[in-house]
Design a protein around this nucleic acid. Sequence first.
DNA 1: GATCCTCGAGTTCC
DNA 2: CTCGAGGATC
Length: 682
Amino acid sequence: MAQQESVVDRIDALRQAIADHNHHYYVLDAPIVSDAQYDRLMVELQALEQAHPDLITPDSPTQRVGAAPLAAFGSVRHAVPMLSLGNAFEADEVSAFDRRVQETLRGAGMLAADEQVVYQAEYKFDGLAISVRYENGRLVQAATRGDGQTGEDVTSNIRTLRSLPLTLRGDFPDVLEVRGEVLMTRADFEQLNQKQLERGEKIFVNPRNAAAGSLRQLDPRITASRPLRFYAYGWGQMTRRTRTDDQHTAVLDWFETLGLPVSPRRERVIGIDGLLDFYDRTGSLRDELPFEIDGVVYKVNSLAAQDVLGFVARAPRFALAHKYPAQEETTRLLGIEVQVGRTGAITPVARLEPVFVGGVTVTNATLHNEDEIRRKDVRIGDTVIVRRAGDVIPEVVGPVLDLRPDDAACFVMPLSCPVCGSAIERPEDEAIARCSGGLFCAAQRKQTLLHAVSRKALDIDGLGEKLIDQLVDSERVKSLADLFSLTLDELSRYERMGKKSAENLVAALQKARHPALDRLLYALGIRHVGETTARALAQYFGSLEAVIKADEDTLLGVPDVGPIVARSIVRFFSEPHNLDVLNALQQTGVQAQAVQPSDNKNTLALSGKTVVLTGTLPVWTRDDARRHILAAGGKVSGSVSRKTSYVVAGDQAGSKLARAHDLGVPVLDEAGLKDLLGFSED
DNA sequence: GATCCTCGAGTTCC
DNA sequence: CTCGAGGATC
């Protein structure tokens, strides 16, 4: 008997401890035991319950994953309807909302003439709205929003969320319907997808879909394995309010004392200025939050005032959702075309039904390569999710499988180049397919020319895609050298070429006849020779002739040149066609400026240092900063590593700054960089 | 041989 | 910016 007693006590103690640890881990975000210790408690409890099945209760933590899979979700009628919120995108819509609230409250004598309304401002999570019902402190039911009146019964799935207590603590009311959002953090989402990938299961396109998919599992064991969180922001039926206060914020504070995870940021703000300020501050934090939000929500903080304001149709008049421009939208994938790049790389491009996302209308997006299309499983005719996040370049995230039409077609890589008809080849171990036509292919010739005249190469202004198209199509220009024999008169005959434009172009060509050696080398478009390698070659050899004469062994002596790059260079200069072009260039008076192979390297301020730039600097552009660093003997790199000497961070610095902190790399601002470079400040 | 780091190449819209 | 792949390093 006594032994039985102690088993009961032990089981109680274990359950209490596990609930406590869940609370610390998920709600307070401050775990007090290790995962291993937690697991040991759980294992002990399971063992005891197995030995004494009669002691198992439904709110034991072992019973989070309860019964067998469901055949279908039942439906639940909400005791108090789950409403949607009015939406605003623009500041003047928010002003109008605030004005209406003021008028109503003044009319009811609840707001003095010169008084501002007090609001609670909070995140609008991008997840799923859920209502969780507690009776006598026990979790008895959970439902989705559904149509607002009736939702789906997801009780057994919601019970598996460890952040949600199965029993409330403290001074709880008899009946409490907690309203909140189920979501997945970005980090958990990434991890889940990683796991799905390893197991060969389908990956989710974004945290929201992952959360929705996880919650809509008929087998709660699957839901239990998914890292879902819950944040409370409101309530439905509630038999008693806090006795102390009559404020929205106070009710949520009270929820916290009941052990419920409450929306982590809720500020009291005053008047329209407070609202818009919160919107702006949150907007600049948005990309760094651990979860995704699609806006913020404002609620009149006084509950008495909320009652007075009441409801219109299906939305409360006391609350408003202020949304950020969508970073993701869905649209239709009309087709997949291929582009031919300078090196012959065949890039599939998605043609999209125009869609407004992230502030611009997107019609095209790269799909990178065949593997990428397969990995994302996008098909022509699919409804796809398009994202245009912090970075500028739109991206097809993935298909909405539920909306896939029966006739959706897979992309097939063409066998021959759409421009020149040459075979398209893809080496076994490479991701990229290439047109084998070389410079026989007009697309490759055009891209090669565009590359040669680009800003970082010969920097010839006034030679855009349109003109190059015409020059190449008319066969007037077959190689880089032909550009330099263009005359004012013949240029004027091309479309959209006025006299002034033609003069400008001829002047730009004249200026480009004496490029720095590294620019010329880069302009030639030798495979594997980019800006950095071109500079290294120029430094090492000093003249174009020396580079042409160099054999593979000599080239291997150049920093950052290995066998593949060396072979590529030798091959380029042994190609008769390329030598012809170089001769022709010389004929038209193009002569690279010789470079002094430098040896004063170690005397400069930034010799041997690697600097990474991130964010927007207050005065200099990125390119200014780059040039100054190079001039001081430093290198500029794109990614932060342990070898990075400094990170120069400007406004809106992102992941690189975080990584710098992680690795203990010194961080400078623009002024710090200028100090280092010996610029005087004034 | 593995791992880390850096470079090259391709990309969208206005 | 992001990938893929070449080069350097241990």
